[in-house]
């Protein structure tokens, strides 16, 4: 099961605005195996959404991919024309967006919107497509799909719309599903339903999923692999356990320290990450996290660190991991919950 479905190599994406070039993504690399669920974590401006749009090749003016390669099923799609991408998008790579209120077209029925994708990519007849649309709605857990298929988006609640979006995204059984903050706009109980749905779908269809979010709880829940992004770069990458129990980058530690834990009894003061993210028009010379890092050293502000491999799957970009670096006492932010039973 180590078939690589997606491989991103040294991807750089920029937006050319009047203020200058905003280097949203500044050379990131990662890969995703079949059936894996990867989480991309980071705050706004870290480049996580731009990464997903770059993979989908849905960047809008003035954004463009500056350099790098994106291999999807072994094929480089960076230089694919829009026309060729049409056959990949929606069919082999599908996407779920953050806002379920605006990502469905209000003048078509839910059924029409699912059928459109099915007819476009699978060439089924209208009747067959409708049957499939109903099946998809049932799969994503919408009650009485036979009736709901002819409803308009406004007749659906937020959670149901997000399920409908998932139905559209999954109707062609894509190999890769990119979910950009799929639950951020939803309530926790509905978020819970959507996350369960994604887990189920992964089991049933063996879809690879990239989940972009800032919610570490969501990531812990369903991701097997995590990429932590900051300032347009990957700060740390590893399995879910690596990131949560053995973080090596001060930014990852900072994230873990700044969120309260519902399950841990004692009420401790939160430790925020001070300051604000860097301006990507003039990205800092060295490590982008230097200005907010409690362990920043002279070298951090001058030179960007290289990746240090901690083990097979776990790597981080930090000078502290260099063999010459002084040993510092660090609060890693790891809090182990008590597991009942």
């Amino acid at each position: 099961m180590s078939e690589k479905i997606l491989e991103v190599k040294n991807l750089k994406t920029s937006f050319y605005t009047h203020l200058g070039e905003v280097q949203a993504v500044r050379g990131i690399s990662f890969s995703l195996n079949k059936g894996e669920v990867m989480g991309i974590v980071g705050e706004s401006g870290s480049g996580k959404s731009v990464t997903s749009l770059s993979i989908m090749k849905l960047l809008q003016y003035p954004g463009e991919i500056k350099s790098g390669d994106i291999f999807f099923k072994g094929e480089n799609i960076v230089n694919k024309k829009n026309k060729e991408m049409l056959n990949i998008r929606g069919n082999e790579i599908a996407m779920i967006f953050q806002d379920p209120m605006t990502s469905l077209n209000p003048v078509y029925t839910i059924g029409d919107q699912i059928m459109e994708v099915i007819i476009r990519h699978q060439g089924l007849s209208k009747k067959k497509a409708k049957e499939k649309a109903i099946d998809m709605l049932r799969l994503v857990g919408i009650p009485s799909p036979e009736e709901r298929v002819s409803n308009y988006p406004y007749e659906f609640s937020g959670g149901m719309r997000q399920r409908a979006m998932a139905a559209i995204a999954l109707s062609c059984e894509p190999d890769l599903l990119i979910a950009d903050e799929p639950t951020t706009a939803l309530d926790v109980t509905i978020q819970d339903q959507i996350l369960k749905l994604m887990k189920d779908l992964k089991e049933k269809l063996d879809t690879s999923i990239i989940l972009i979010t800032h919610d570490l709880g969501v990531v812990a829940d369903i991701c097997t692999k995590i990429v932590v992004m900051y300032g347009g770069l990957v700060m740390e990458e590893g399995t879910s356990k690596d990131i949560f129990y053995n973080p090596k980058h001060p930014y990852t530690m900072g994230l873990l320290k700044s969120i309260p834990r519902l399950d841990l009894g004692e009420k401790k003061r939160l430790i925020p990450i001070t300051g604000t993210p860097p301006d990507l028009i003039k990205p800092p010379m060295g490590c982008p996290f230097t200005a907010r890092c409690p362990y920043a050293m002279k070298i951090c502000s001058l030179h960007a660190p290289k990746y240090t491999k901690i083990d097979e799957n776990h790597k981080a970009m930090c000078w502290l991991l260099h063999k010459q670096s002084p040993n510092m006492k660090m609060d890693t932010g790891v809090k182990r919950g008590v597991i009942n039973e």
């Binding site: 060295g286 230097t290 362990y295 920043a296 050293m297 030179h303 960007a304 260099h322």
Partner: peptide
């Protein structure tokens, strides 16, 4: 990133000084 000049195996001692970033 202009860090190609750094010799990864021997980095000068002073580089490892902690910076006191009040301004940050």
């Amino acid at each position: 990133m202009g860090n190609s000049k750094v010799n990864m195996d021997s980095i000068p001692e002073d580089m490892w000084e902690k910076i006191d970033n009040k301004e940050k």
